[in-house]
Amino acid sequence: MNAYLTINTVPELACLLLAVVFLGRDKDPFWRMLILYLFLTCMVELAGIYIHKVLQRSNMPLYTVFVLFECFAVSSFFFALLRPYGLKRRWLAAWLAVFILTYFAELLAGHFHHFVSVTTSLMSVAFVLAALCYYYLLLNADKFERLTLHAAFWWTNGSFIFYFGGTVCNLFFDILIAHPASVYTHSIRYIIFGVSDVILYTCWSLSFLCRYLQRRSTPSSA
């Protein structure tokens, strides 16, 4: 049982629990979608541990498929955040088309044996740009927002740190795979993504709490 409670799974499970509590009755489908996404993330994470520890097999294919869901969920949510500032649906469609093309091109190039690290890097860069774009539009907007209690701001913060922080790992993915963890107890990827995960899910949990408080104070808007 302890094998399933890692630095990745504990924050994910806690965040899922908070998402169910705080977003369960939210009227916005994009916020509610996050519950499903987090549920899927937890399931993939636990299945990944099972495949790796119990079946003693590579869990890479599982994470390769999960990237598709991750990109769809996070892209859709960024679209929901940027839509009030004038982002058109066709931009989302164009980005998803580019992503799918890159994804399958990389899969074919690696004969379905390698993780899609280039596509993941591309996805990270796109999400970092989306976050920066959101900050820019938020600061340029006429309406003042109290950011310390702004749900969308905290969600973006978590995503921004996670995807920007993971960029180095994604870029050096092949080297990290080629050099297994012989020096430290855990691989450097595991530590970096562990820290990123804690930051991501802490920010997201805070975001869900802010969203809940916002819904309580203005029931019609959320």
Binding site: V168, C169, I188
Partner: peptide
């Protein structure tokens, strides 16, 4: 390699 990647990641975080 780990040190370089670790430090870079720290900066990126």
């Amino acid at each position: 390699i780990y040190s370089i990647i670790g430090l870079s990641s720290l900066v990126f975080l």
